[in-house]
């Protein structure tokens, strides 16, 4: 049975995020309190890398259960969106990622003061990834680069859990046929199954979202249908996790959300980065 491999330091998981950095990402995010999509997405991704680091933290070190990459696509090219010492790197072990953020900001959060009130607490907020938005949407180029990266990964980790690629976009590919570009990526496979490609379409308007559809019948246009066609089916464990989070997931659900608002993105990334019901070791 596919998608059962244990995540371990010997066989780590691979998460690759493809991030739309086209000009339209500078528009406001529906449900984002006036924030731009690029800004909100940067915060969500930084928080995700933060959470993955915490999940892998063990006493005073980090176990490399995951390798993570972020590719940004904008104008006419695709490149690693990680900066600083990690600039240009495609996949980075989580311990190295945790140790080399661009900077560590201090942010305040409200928490329970234990006496029925609320207190402000200063927390460290590492930043790996800054918002950016310019030019077109070369999504096919990003999928092509991602295919090379996951193919190398599968050669090096043939027994590991298949790589998970999560594409986050607010628009349509401006450089070709998205479905055709996705096919080679999801054809890359190891002993535990094929690489998984999930898509999140970000909303600029407050229209209804379509979450984890099993078919394309309710999708409004051909671009949404293309994203659906390019998306892999969720694994059984992901379906279970989605159900726990209150999302309408079924056995045939694709890893796709159309018209996603920030909370959808957070939930979807939670689902997409929990490969299987295994204990990290």
């Amino acid at each position: 049975m596919a998608y059962q491999a244990e995540i371990s330091r010997k066989n780590p998981g691979c998460f690759l995020f493809l991030v739309d950095q086209s000009e339209s990402m500078e528009d406001p995010f529906a449900g984002g309190n006036g924030k731009k999509k690029a800004e909100e997405l940067a915060t969500i991704l930084n928080k995700l890398i933060h959470n993955l680091s915490i999940r892998c933290a063990k006493s005073d070190s980090i176990y490399d259960y995951f390798h993570v990459g972020v590719l940004g696509y904008s104008e006419d090219s695709c490149k690693s969106a990680l900066g600083g010492e990690l600039s240009g790197r495609s996949l980075v072990p989580i311990s190295e990622l945790a140790g080399k953020p661009l900077r560590i900001e201090e942010r305040t959060k409200q928490s329970d003061d234990g006496a029925g009130g609320v207190m402000e607490q200063t927390v460290k907020f590492p930043v790996w990834f800054d918002p950016y938005g310019k030019g077109g949407t070369p999504m096919c180029a990003a999928l092509k680069d991602a295919t090379k990266i996951v193919a190398t990964w599968c050669q090096e980790h043939p027994q590991g859990f298949p790589p998970i690629v999560i594409n986050i976009t607010d628009g349509e590919a401006t450089d070709g046929d998205l479905v055709a570009a996705a096919r080679p990526l999801t054809a890359v496979s190891g002993e535990d199954g094929s690489a998984l490609l999930f898509n999140i379409h970000l909303s600029s308007t407050a229209g209804p979202s379509i979450e984890l559809p099993g078919d394309a019948s309710k999708l409004p246009d051909q671009h949404a249908k293309a994203l659906f066609d390019a998306s892999s089916t969720l694994t059984p464990f992901m379906v279970a996790r989605a159900t726990e989070l209150g999302l309408p997931a079924a056995e045939n659900s694709r890893g796709f959300i159309f018209n996603a608002q920030p909370l959808h993105v957070i939930h979807f990334l939670d689902i997409g980065t929990r490969p299987a019901n295994v204990r990290l070791r």
């Binding site: 680091s53 915490i54 933290a57 063990k58 006493s59 005073d60 070190s61 980090i62 945790a98 140790g99 560590i104 460290k124 590492p126």
Partner: peptide, 14 residues
Amino acid sequence: GRPLPWFASEKAEQ
């Protein structure tokens, strides 16, 4: 009093 990197101290908080 043990000097811990940000991720380790946050995890220990849990």
